[in-house]
Design a protein around this nucleic acid. Structure first.
Lengths: 326, 326
DNA sequence: GCCGAAATCTAGCACGTGCTAGTTTCTCCG
DNA sequence: CGGAGAAACTAGCACGTGCTAGATTTCGGC
């Protein structure tokens, strides 16, 4: 900055004013300074800015890059944060990399808040972090821990999907769970409740999964080897559904003629031409925007009671569902 | 840090020494200070550290989270960087987010070097950035721009895959390209050269793709609708191959009985039980380690001529390839 | 018990920026 | 033309850390 000031023949303070677009400089001078800065390839030192400002305006986003839907939410986080002057700092949860390590690093960057996409921890963990930082969970039901949550309406989403299948004439509708993954137990509970409401309580069948395509494939094998007369499957997320579809295709089972499949998330995966999966839509952009909104509220009032933001879900019908074979 | 010093009854400088594990403190004092620091939840301010040290020890990693293999490389980057005291700062290329924006942000964090995973730019772009930063490209052939490159031996990888198919008895082997994506033109060239070497120059058939599953699905449709007698397909990457497999399954074409399919990258995708794809293996950990090594060399000798690191490829045979039907 | 050296600890500046409190220049109007 | 007020610009401190140079304590050997 001193170099730019010298080159432009002005004080360092004025360069600071211009670079921040702060009031206190003439239009002509603004252009002059910006031009010399560009010529010198100058870029403000974020470290010095963070140090000097009391606020860093950084929001840490923790996620697992292997889950496609989490990636979609993270991508949507950039514009959402930008709109309110925040900068996104990513913390990827790679294989051996521990969550605590990642958090430590983000704390080192003086993030004002952390957004956990999908990830979960024991309650004590949240208490510990929340004392020092804003904390928002995306995609999780509220636990006993007093933490802000942004999520979709799982109950309604599952319910609409089941009704769609029932309307087509399906009765024997299985569910591929997500184990202990975010939102999974809620979706499983919603499945049981929904089946009961449709008078299909006797047909309830839960296959274990883990939100991965591999889990979906395993569920498909269990289904086929079990010799059941299931005509439709609701998967806890799209990634599971894709694995399910893959294994079904491999075994020569045709979708939707032999079996109907419904996914959950309506991630990009579901829209692929060769997948074309009926799925319950969660809007990643809306989730991201709500997460940033929650962060802002939390930072304004650190001691306010935790808020829960529930966004609507809706069903997107594609070609993976049809009436069962007579 | 001042708080910790006060609480521990020592000078601020001593706390600094202890936290950095620098020499100049007794073992007893080390423990005492670390305990009080932990009790107060103290974490060094990265911004202040970067500001004070001439070096940030940050390496910026730019990637597209939608490409599974790039994600695998990025994940491998953490331990590779860690081993040499570097910190990874991620720059995700989300939809609307421009590469220049992402670079600007990483420059703001005073990254000492940037690693571009997959992404490509016109040559002029590299020249411009390289003046200010170390720059390493992963997965790209060297262009005329003088930039360090880390890549796999595409030529050999493609060659081994083709030989495998030829040994099984295939002659009509098509290739699904990657358009203008990283490494794609090299793989396409290697395909043509390999076919020629096998005496199959007359059988060359290139289908356009774009490294996505959607592109692979489109290629499958082109193949089936074209009514050709292709018995094997080599895809430019696994993601394409997965789309190909998906569309083939949808159309009732059985793999490997009707058509053999080979992927490229040997990403996690290829190993899925329902995919189980024969694929040319690129080792993401080795690529990441080589990228960090290149960064270190470049930072030590900024003006050294650009180096190109070529890592070996090998074929991993799974169940997507077999002898053609008689 | 004393001296020098090693070990341990401390004082204070610098890193690049934002911002408050000035100082100078410009503008407008009587 | 003068003066007041606004606009434009500048001086200098503070942010939290690392590190150099100096101060103090400990230790070994005679």
């Amino acid at each position: 900055m001193a170099d730019v000031a010298r080159a432009a023949g002005v004080s360092r303070a004025l360069v600071s004013i211009v670079m921040r677009d702060a009031p206190g400089a003439s239009a002509a001078m603004r252009q002059h300074v910006k031009e010399t800065a560009a010529a010198l390839g100058y870029r403000a030192n974020t470290a010095a800015q963070v140090l000097r400002r009391s606020r860093s305006h950084n929001v840490g986003v923790l996620f697992s890059p292997r889950f496609p839907f989490e990636v979609e939410i993270v991508e949507a986080m950039y514009p959402a944060a930008d709109a309110h002057g925040y900068t996104v700092v990513l913390g990827a949860m790679a294989g051996t990399r521990d969550l605590d390590e990642a958090v430590d690093e983000l704390v080192g960057h003086r993030c004002e808040a952390l957004v956990l996409v999908g990830l979960d921890r024991p309650d004590g963990w949240f208490e510990q972090v929340r004392g020092r930082l804003g904390l928002v969970r995306v995609g999780r039901m509220p636990s006993s821990a007093a933490v802000d949550v942004v999520r979709s309406d799982e109950r309604r989403g599952v319910s609409v999907a089941l009704r769609h299948l029932a309307d087509l004439g399906h009765r024997r509708i299985a569910f591929v769970g997500g184990g202990t993954m975010p939102g999974a137990s809620e979706r499983a509970a919603a499945y049981r409740a929904g089946m009961r409401r449709l008078g299909l309580a006797a047909e309830v069948m839960v296959l274990e999964g883990d939100y991965t395509d591999e889990g979906g494939a395993a569920a498909a094998r269990a289904l086929l080897d079990g010799g059941t007369d299931v005509t439709a499957v609701l998967a806890a997320n799209d990634w599971s559904a894709v694995g399910l579809l893959g294994e079904l295709a491999r075994r020569g089972v045709h979708v939707p003629t032999d079996v109907s499949v419904v996914g959950y998330d309506d991630s990009d995966l579901a829209r692929r031409s060769y997948v074309d999966l009926t799925s319950v839509r969660q809007d990643p952009a809306a989730l991201a925007a709500a997460a940033i909104a929650a962060v802002r509220l939390r930072l304004e009032q650190p001691d306010a009671p935790p808020i829960e933001t529930v966004l609507p879900s809706r069903l997107v019908v594609r070609s993976s569902t049809a009436a069962p074979r007579r």
